[in-house]
Write a protein that binds this DNA or RNA. Structure first.
Lengths: 267, 267
DNA sequence: TAAGGGTGTTTCAAAAAGTGAAACAGCGTT
DNA sequence: AACGCTGTTTCACTTTTTGAAACACCCTTA
């Protein structure tokens, strides 16, 4: 028995089921059959068939007539395009990132919370010894990246516990945190200090430092992280300490944009 | 009374309503209030409130706590990212486009059908006197662009009539086709010749030529268009005639990729 | 200050939609 | 030919969805 991802009690259960189907797609599962999906989501095949037909009819899924399997459809990219244009955050981030990128070798990331994952809204490589590891729209876990930890730490305790009990709380590398105690310890540290670090817990050779972006109501609406190649930095501690004020500064600059404006944005 | 966009009878009406809400967002309407949305979609405000709460709970919408209005949420860009990686069409198109782009001044577009619109999956500017006018995820009408006409022409007659009766069949410039007779005449011509043209019917100064991309079953799965600045071409007819074999060649090359492979694609 | 027009939200009985076990039909492989 | 898989249909049952009305709130206007 599987419990629905983030959500406690949503008013429209049928719609919620349809959205669960959309969220079942991932980099490792790009297409689904009806019964396969029904098994995964613990739903009746007849129900899944009806929902999937509706999703496909509206362009959110596409049916491969050969294999009878379903993949995501073109409707989603239209929505994403609208989201990226209307949402000022990525624009602000790019503007700020660009004013730093030619001075540092790090990669810059802006991400926000989506369910139990970070979803990246803007990325930029600095003078780039490492390539950007995640692109806009990509997502990573909340416990395995600096950005994820930042976003997680500022959520409610009940949210954090729900995440810990979810299937997404799992190991990506040997150093990924898998112990709730350790995670909670880091969360308290993050809440106290206002920044998060990551030592190869998602990608082996990449470390990162992250700081929160606040809106006018002092809610965390996004996070910023700087990523660096770990093997190029002999004395880690010293360098990471240098990064902390930098990532804070960048995050604060973005916060200022967010708080200054709030809705005055033209596509 | 408004009839749902593309669809005749979808099995899950509640889900369909939720998707209609998502599709209500457009470049000109990036945020909605509950009652506003209810009016637009001819639904009960209570119903809209329930659906919108569910959509927001799953990350497909975001509620602005200040204004109580809803905008698209981060879940959509994750899906779009997955779509772009799993769908081989954009990759094929870029590969083919790049082999032509340094030889011509035109812009290259790949688009597919989404409801009653073209949605663009890949764009590339050639040696570029004009900037790209639409980006991936952007959409235009089916009667006002060459690409749109191609995609429309290969649909069923009943689909075409439904489109003509929809609100999307409207003028963008003074030369946009608004007369059903004229549109039908062009559709028959396109079906006969296999290509479509556009003389500033969507953007005043831009003309284009388009050709269809076929899958293994000879269904049109996408279209390709080349756009050129109209004011730079004194004798239009001659130049357009030169473009036709070119756009056909490009479309056919992409068709070959599509037909060769069909599902062997690694993200 | 009060009225008016806008907003989102709640109620609850009536109505409609969703549900799912089982049976069916089709396609490969065993 | 039997098995195991697929997606699909049926139809009585159950549950969810529905919506008019009332409510509460925030503005702007009179």
């Amino acid at each position: 028995m599987e419990q629905p991802p983030v959500i406690e009690m949503l008013p429209s259960q049928t719609l919620a089921k349809g959205l669960r189907i959309l969220n079942a797609f991932s980099p490792t599962r790009t297409s689904w059959g009806i019964r396969e999906l029904a098994r995964e989501l613990d739903m009746n095949p007849a129900t899944v068939a009806r929902l999937v037909t509706t999703l496909a009819g509206a362009g959110f899924l596409e049916r491969d007539p050969e294999t009878q399997r379903y993949a995501l459809g073109p409707a989603v990219i239209k929505l994403a395009n609208l989201y990226m244009h209307h949402n000022p955050l990525p624009h602000y981030a790019r503007k700020v990132f660009e004013s730093y990128s030619d001075r540092f070798d790090y990669n810059f990331y802006l991400g926000t919370l989506n369910g139990y994952q970070v979803v990246y809204l803007a990325v930029l490589d600095g003078r780039g010894r490492i390539k950007v590891m995640v692109e806009p729209g990509g997502s990573t876990g909340l416990h395995s990246t600096a950005l994820g930890k930042i976003l997680l730490a500022y959520q409610s305790d009940s949210f954090i516990n729900a995440f810990i009990n979810s299937r997404l709380f799992r190991a990506y590398t040997e150093t990924t945190i898998t112990d709730p105690e350790t995670l909670w310890a880091q969360i308290h540290e993050i809440r106290r200090t206002g920044y998060a670090v990551n030592h190869g817990e998602h990608f082996h050779d990449i470390g990162a430092v992250a700081a929160p972006v606040f809106n006018r109501r002092q809610e965390v609406v996004a996070g910023v992280s700087l990523a660096y190649p770990r093997n190029l930095i002999p004395n880690l501690q010293v360098n990471v300490d240098n990064l902390i004020p930098l990532v804070r500064e960048i995050a604060d600059n973005i916060s200022m944009y967010v708080q200054g404006d709030a809705r005055s944005h033209q596509p």
